[in-house]
Design a protein around this nucleic acid. Structure first.
Lengths: 167, 167
DNA sequence: TTCTCAGCCGAAGGAAATAAGGCATGTTTG
DNA sequence: CAAACATGCCTTATTTCCTTCGGCTGAGAA
């Protein structure tokens, strides 16, 4: 009541309140999560248990969603990275998104504004496998009449982590 | 000399030789890398040190590129996910890609075939910040005369890991 | 002032990662 | 064929790290 902090939270996903140490900690973990709490503590000028508590809090706050291993797709039989734009005029497709998730080649599924309603990030062994994947997608109920076009990605670079260093 | 294994490596990024346990191990680590070697060993029917050796080998083979924390962008002041298509007719832009990497909102930089030569995956606080980002991009040397258009992503779903379960 | 709370520290216990030695299987070499 | 080797695994042992606990300190509220 004394504070009017609740006035500035119009969003559904409320942004977490983070101080500078939280942000640098998140940045460090986003680029390499194998660091020990002792090492992180040295960088943050904190004791290992203090770092541990912060990580624990960030985890159960949902800021840290998971810890995963980043694999090299080109070493795993899928060197070809591509984006598939799907022109879906019908909104009924959303019910068939689960079918797309079953395709192992599909890494990301985006519903985007603009001409194409969907944008898929896919990874295949070669162009033939990409063609096969396209055929498989268009055989899914809800994608039968849709058109799609492919954009091969010849380069990829991971940028910095999405930690907002500005306000 | 007796074996002609070196005949079958025409690719620059040679696919690693993996057995079934390697693949399931990679799949497990790609979805959650916090599991202990003991737990992984139970799932793979291996002892903890055996799992450790496999992970170590996969790491120095480059199959596992890194271990990172996955952050929730919507909790970090950047709830808006978008794709920026940039029409760059000049190939001289490649020398200015480093400037794009400096922008904290840019998560991925793809050089794709098709009409748009570049595809950026970006994350901003709101549409105003997105406009500002666009302006900043077009002020970069090499992107001065280029055109771009935005596609907001209203949905995102991470698919399975890029571990090829087929041959 | 006094109370409470949040965040940090140091110590301690337990759990997990890592290293070392030995064994079995399959492959190359003499 | 037999010997030497390599590979992959297991068990044991050591060390490092994670995790919990109790107490301390400073900020804010009563």
């Amino acid at each position: 009541m004394t504070k009017d902090t609740n006035h500035v939270r119009p969003r559904l996903a409320a942004p977490a309140r983070l101080d500078d140490k939280d942000r640098t900690l998140l940045g460090l973990l986003a680029e390499d999560s194998t660091r020990s709490y002792a090492e992180l503590g040295k960088l943050l000028h904190l004791s290992p248990p203090a770092v541990h508590e912060r990580v624990k809090r960030l985890r159960q706050d949902g800021v840290i969603k998971a810890n995963v291993a980043v694999l090299d797709g080109s070493r795993l039989g899928r060197p070809l990275l591509a984006f598939v734009h799907v022109d879906t005029t019908s909104w009924a497709v959303t019910r068939h998104l689960l079918a797309l998730k079953e395709l192992p080649e599909v890494e990301e599924i985006h519903t985007v504004t603009g001409e194409s309603a969907m944008l898929l990030k896919v990874r295949t062994r070669d162009t033939q496998a990409l063609e096969d994947l396209l055929e498989r997608i268009h055989s899914i109920e809800g994608f039968k009449g849709t058109r799609s076009y492919i954009a091969l990605s010849t380069y990829l670079e991971r940028g910095p982590s999405p930690v907002a260093d500005d306000q």
